[in-house]
């Protein structure tokens, strides 16, 4: 079971790594989203998975009855999902601002445009053959 999940996690990570190494800032943000999903799955899998009951204590008992899933990684991931959301939204709005200000999303053109405050219209850079 863990073996399959490990492959899935590795694939999501590989996709995320690939995208953050691209020249396009938008793809970079997408890579960030993939990476945060990958990390969540990684922690989840490393914390031991089970198909049993969720970590909830039934009425009338003071401890969980029978085998339940590991609560600790779930608590960690819950935090991580929310933080990742905050990061993603901030990154996207920042990206939007960058485009409006500098007129490009190419990482190698950003600093070139920093020197001239006039925004450049459109994405002429992107038309260049790759």
């Amino acid at each position: 079971m863990e073996a399959y999940l490990a492959v899935v996690v590795g694939a999501v990570f590989a996709g995320g790594f690939y995208l953050v190494m691209q020249r396009n800032l938008l793809r970079f943000v997408f890579g960030l989203i993939l990476l945060s999903s990958g990390v969540n799955l990684l922690v989840f899998t490393a914390g031991g998975i089970s198909r049993g009951a969720p970590p909830i204590i039934p009425e009338g008992a003071s401890v969980p009855v029978g085998e339940v899933a590991n609560a600790l990684p779930q608590a960690l991931i819950l935090t991580a999902i929310v933080i990742g959301f905050g990061l993603t939204v901030f990154a996207m709005v920042l990206l939007l601002r960058v485009y409006e200000r500098l007129g490009t999303l190419r990482t190698d053109r950003l600093t070139a445009h920093l020197d001239d405050p006039q925004p450049v219209a459109g994405l002429p850079d992107d038309e260049a053959p790759a």
């Binding site: 691209q22 020249r23 996207m92 990206l95 485009y99 409006e100 999303l105 459109g122 994405l123 790759a130």
Partner: peptide, 15 residues
Amino acid sequence: VLIRLPSSALRGEGG
């Protein structure tokens, strides 16, 4: 966010 970006926003990769 994407609506505000041109449709070509995802093109133009490196070599």
